[in-house]
C-alpha cells in the first residue's frame, strides 16, 4: 500500500479474505492447489507404510526370482545386483529420489521400466473402473427414483430385494456366478481374457462386460439403496417438498425436480467414498478374469516382492483417491448454491 495524497478512504476489502486468497484469485483454484499440496504428505505416508509392510513379509525379490533351489551365494549376488543388500531406509530414499524426479524405476523382476508397465496396464484398469462406475450410477438413479416414488410399492420391494442380494454377495462370488451363467452355460461372453480396443470396440467390450458387472453390481445396489432412502427422507420430511406439492407440482416432478437435486449431494459423497472400494475391487476381479491391469500387476508384484512396482501401484491408487475427493468437493460447489469456496 503506497501512501497517497487523496483523503483516506477505507479500503473496501473483505476482512474474511486471507492474504493467500488474494494471491490466487480464484477460490476454486485455491482449493485445488491446497488439495494437491495435501496429497504430498498422503503419498509419503502411503509409500512409507507400504514399504514397511512389504519388508515385514519374509523373502525378497532375489529369493523369489531364483526359486527355492538357489544357493545362498547366488541369492546374495543377485541381492547385490538389485540393491537389496542396502538397508531399507536407504532403498526407500533411493526410490523416492527417483520417483520425485519422475523416474519410477525398473521392475526388480522383469527389469522393465515401471512407467512402461503402467502405460500398458493403466488403460485396462481405467476402462474397467469407468464401465463399472458409469453403469452402476446410470442404472441406480432411475431405479432409486422408481422405488422412492411409492415407498412400500411393488418397485420399491423389488429393488429392495435385488439390492439386498447384491450387497450380501461378495464381488468375487458374483464374478464366478456370472462366468458360470454367461460364459460357461450360455456361452455368450468370454470367461477370461482381454482384447485391446484396437481389435474392435465390440470385441473389447465383450471381454469387459462380466468383470465390470461383477464390480459394478454391488455398487449399483449400494447407490440404489442409499439414494432411495435419501429421496424418501426428503419427500417425507422436508418442508420444501410440501411447498412444491402445495404449488400443485405433480408427484414425479416433485421427486425429480425438487427432491433428487437435494439428494444428489449425499449420493456424490457416497460415490466419492466408494471410489476407493471400486478400485480395490479391481485387484481380485482382474485376477479372476485374467485382465492385464494394475490390480493384477499389484498382486504379482507382491508375490515376487517387487517393491518398486508395488510402490507405483500404491501411488496411483492414492492419487486417484485424492483426486476423486477433490472432484467430489468441486461438484458440491457446482450443485449446491449454498457452498462457495473461498468465503469463510
Amino acid at each position: 500500500m503506497t501512501a497517497t495524497a487523496t483523503p483516506r478512504v477505507p479500503v473496501s476489502r473483505d476482512p474474511r479474505v486471507s492474504p493467500l486468497s488474494r494471491l490466487t484469485a480464484s477460490p476454486v483454484l485455491r482449493l485445488v492447489v491446497k488439495r494437491l499440496l495435501m496429497a504430498i504428505p498422503i503419498m509419503l505416508g502411503v509409500t512409507v507404510l507400504t514399504f514397511w509392510v512389504l519388508s515385514l513379509i519374509p523373502g525378497n525379490a532375489a529369493q523369489q526370482l531364483l526359486g527355492p533351489e538357489a544357493t545362498p551365494e547366488d541369492i546374495a549376488l543377485l541381492e547385490q545386483q538389485l540393491g537389496l543388500d542396502k538397508p531399507g531406509v536407504v532403498r526407500y530414499f533411493d526410490w523416492l529420489q527417483g520417483a520425485v524426479t519422475g523416474d519410477l524405476g525398473n521392475s526388480l523382476v522383469s527389469r522393465q521400466p515401471v512407467s512402461e508397465i503402467l502405460s500398458a496396464r493403466l488403460p485396462v484398469t481405467a476402462e474397467l473402473v469407468f464401465l463399472a462406475f458409469v453403469v452402476s450410477l446410470v442404472l441406480a438413479v432411475p431405479v432409486a427414483l422408481l422405488a422412492a416414488h411409492k415407498p412400500g410399492g411393488v418397485m420399491d420391494r423389488i429393488s429392495m430385494m435385488i439390492s439386498t442380494l447384491g450387497l450380501s454377495v461378495a464381488n468375487y462370488v458374483l464374478a464366478l456366478l456370472l462366468v458360470l451363467v454367461f460364459a460357461v452355460s450360455l456361452g455368450w461372453l468370454p470367461a477370461i481374457g482381454y482384447t485391446p480396443l484396437e481389435d474392435g470396440l465390440w470385441a473389447n467390450l465383450r471381454g469387459m462386460i462380466l468383470p465390470s458387472a461383477a464390480i459394478g453390481f454391488p455398487l449399483f445396489c449400494y447407490y440404489t439403496r442409499f439414494l432411495r432412502g435419501d429421496l424418501v427422507d426428503q419427500m417425507q420430511q422436508e418442508e420444501y417438498v410440501t411447498t412444491a406439492r402445495a404449488k400443485g407440482v405433480g408427484s414425479w416432478a416433485v421427486l425429480i425436480k425438487h427432491a433428487f437435486r437435494n439428494s444428489s449431494f449425499g449420493l456424490i459423497t457416497i460415490v466419492g467414498l466408494n471410489l476407493g472400494a471400486l478400485i480395490g475391487g479391481t485387484v481380485i476381479i482382474e485376477q479372476i478374469f485374467a485382465l492385464p491391469g494394475i490390480g493384477q500387476m499389484l498382486l504379482q508384484a507382491i508375490n515376487t516382492r517387487d517393491f518398486v512396482v508395488v510402490q507405483a501401484a500404491v501411488v496411483i491408487f492414492a492419487l486417484v483417491a485424492v483426486v476423486a475427493n477433490l472432484v467430489v468437493d468441486l461438484l458440491y460447489a457446482v450443485l449446491d448454491p449454498r457452498i462457495r469456496y473461498g468465503s469463510r
Partner: peptide, 17 residues
C-alpha cells in the same frame, strides 16, 4: 387454494433460484 408455511428457511427449495 394456496398455502404459506411456518418456516421460510425450510419451505423453499435450497437448490433452486
Amino acid at each position: 387454494i394456496a398455502m404459506v408455511f411456518q418456516d421460510p428457511a425450510r419451505s423453499l427449495n435450497p437448490t433452486m433460484k
